[in-house]
Design a protein around this nucleic acid. Structure first.
Lengths: 215, 215, 215, 215
DNA sequence: TGATAAACGAGACGGTACGTCCCGTCTTGGA
DNA sequence: TCCAAGACGGGACGTACCGTCTCGTTTATCA
């Protein structure tokens, strides 16, 4: 089964690049919310239709523009120790993400993702998935080395490593610096408890939940 | 200190309530981003000016509308065990926050908070602060009971408990159910590592950071 | 029965006038076809919505703008003779209508009238009706004076006086000057025939019509 | 005078016909103003460039499409009487022109003719000239037979016969039926006046003209 | 118990941006 | 070599809301 090629003019590389460039420029100048397709088209010297032809939404355009930066050389660390690997990973990611325009882009995208499922998906595959898989790989190596409990829930582990990052990024109640990265890794690895893991297993179910419709 | 009353018509309670009600209705129907002041005014049978007179922004209006729900009775748990207390706390909070309109409201507010500092502040004091302080209190009791290391960084502890919640709420890659709450608490308390806390302290600084301008 | 007055802000006289003025300016500069609502709004210093709020179409706006000029003092002539009256009337109308922007406006409106019935109606009542009725009045006076046959079809009389005007205006195959006005009136009054009216009555029906779907 | 054919234009005939056909279809469906080159190209299964290659404008395309219909056999009547000849001519022309799509085409072309001189010329030679010359011929025969005054202004005569047709076609204030054709011819031939032609000649110039810039 | 001034509903206003349509030109690749 | 397909820069469309600004009309003190 062969797919027949259409005979038509192809997408213009120049226009494409000009649009991406204009998007990056304008997002730094204006922020996510005040970024307009009209503005991008003008800055790029391009018709609006050329943008609408290739990107279904403002979000999709921004995701592509930022993906280019993100995809840039970024390798999984390998220091022979989970603690060191995670520290390096978080320090690197924090350094990249805390730079001004990023946070606004991220929150803008996240906000749009709430009402637009396709944005959510693109955002997840573009910005979230790879990092989580990197962490999964590092933890697996830790398990293989005997550093980590075999029954560790990797999803939750990834949540406790990245969740605080987004939490601080969005709420701004604490910095995303090296010190935080190291302390976070240590506390995630060691846990809060003075007792051994075994003594904590199977917490009871015997309490009533205060429930309501509110937040 | 009291403000002297002039001789004039007071704020209309009816209009106020109609606006709050319309806001809650419309946010469930349309989501944060597609919510418009114009729409609220029409639904509430109110002039736009009446809204602008009393609320400086869409965000402020929503925060007030939601605060009513949130302020509802919510007490710090006390089961005599940090694990049980945290489990109860998270289960309750998760149950409240995972209900549909909430997530959209929260992310919308968070997004606006990125560009509007006053929104950030109101959001922090209205939705974030109390919960964190509750966690601080519970951990302090844990320390007093000897369940928790004395040198625990409470900020980071709160981050690892609430960060994953926001992370999952916003990205939707996992549920916010009871099971998650329990496992999260256990893993935060026990840590990932098979080794004792003492053997992990003071991770080295001897690696180069992959840094760049990108996310 | 009383009509209750609505309690709301009234139409802005300033905006209204600025729009009319801008329309007249731009139609002279650009012509009917290249006239845009956007352009009018910009020139008038007005939001587009303000135009759309009050006029259903470009045509309606133009009709109003031109009606002001047309409605300006224009009286039925009265020289005691049908020939003189008609000559005066046509000379005056020709003089007004042959000035450059007018012809373009008229043909633009006529073109739009073909697809938009409401434009047709407005155009008829705004530009056509009064002139026809003026002619009817003059002819009636002619009949009363005994200058004109009693059984004259006034509609056709008006058509033979104004039809040539539009025909020449639109096709441009001849001028709309005083000379034309006089000759036209004379020929319409005297007829082409050398014979008396009575000898022409009741032309036969006995010929086949070349018919087809084409023009 | 024949133009020598250069190298092959194989599929051009097919494309050409498809374009003409699509144009005729679409003009009936949408009318002149809402007819777009893009729409014609799509309907004809043809590239837009193929249209632009052969026709300088939408108007030229439509004129060609309609000329085919118009060129169809159409002879000058010859009944031995000017009255009968003119009646036949007008009845035939009215029948052809009053059919729905025609009027829209005509007015569209006329409107464009106002701003595009080449359209005006093509329209005149394609649709106007022949009919006028036909009338000139008939009147000349009438003069030769002694039916018509020797000093008749033929241009004005043609204007009084065709002007009313366009006037009614465009404004729609009256029908273009047989009855109108006959009455029009009679009135044009006999004139309105009860007096002989000789008594009307040389109307005075002694009245002031109400003049202004308006229509 | 009026008067009176702010608050009210209604919605017009100057704007910005939306997403769509079509213009006339330009580019590509298959027939 | 011709030409369908359609991408391109551009202009305008008509709509949705923004936040500000009049309009009369309530309506709740306080003089």
């Amino acid at each position: 089964m062969k797919t027949k090629k259409k005979q038509t003019r192809r997408r213009s590389k120049q226009a494409h690049e000009a649009i991406i460039a204009a998007t990056l420029e304008l997002i730094e100048e204006k922020g996510y919310l005040r970024l307009s397709i009209e503005g991008i088209a003008t800055r790029a010297g391009v018709g609006k239709q050329t943008i609408y032809r290739w990107w279904p939404s403002k979000a999709a355009l921004i995701i592509e523009a930022y993906s280019q930066k993100v995809t840039s050389n970024f390798q999984s660390p390998d220091n022979g120790s989970l603690q060191l690997d995670l520290e390096e990973l978080l320090i690197t990611i924090f350094a990249r993400i805390r730079i001004p325009p990023s946070s606004k882009v991220m929150t803008g995208l996240i906000a749009e993702a709430q009402t637009a499922p396709e944005v959510a998906e693109q955002f997840y595959t573009g910005f979230i998935k790879k990092r989580r898989e990197m962490v999964f790989g590092l933890i697996q190596k830790g398990i293989d080395r005997g550093e980590v409990h075999r029954d560790t829930d990797m999803d939750i582990a990834a949540d406790t490593l990245f969740g605080p990052m987004w939490y601080r990024l969005l709420l701004g109640h604490g910095p995303l610096d090296q010190k935080f990265a190291k302390k976070l890794v240590q506390q995630v690895l060691a846990g809060l408890s003075t007792r051994r893991k075994e003594t904590l297993q199977g917490g009871g179910d015997s309490f009533s939940i205060q429930d309501s419709l509110s937040v």
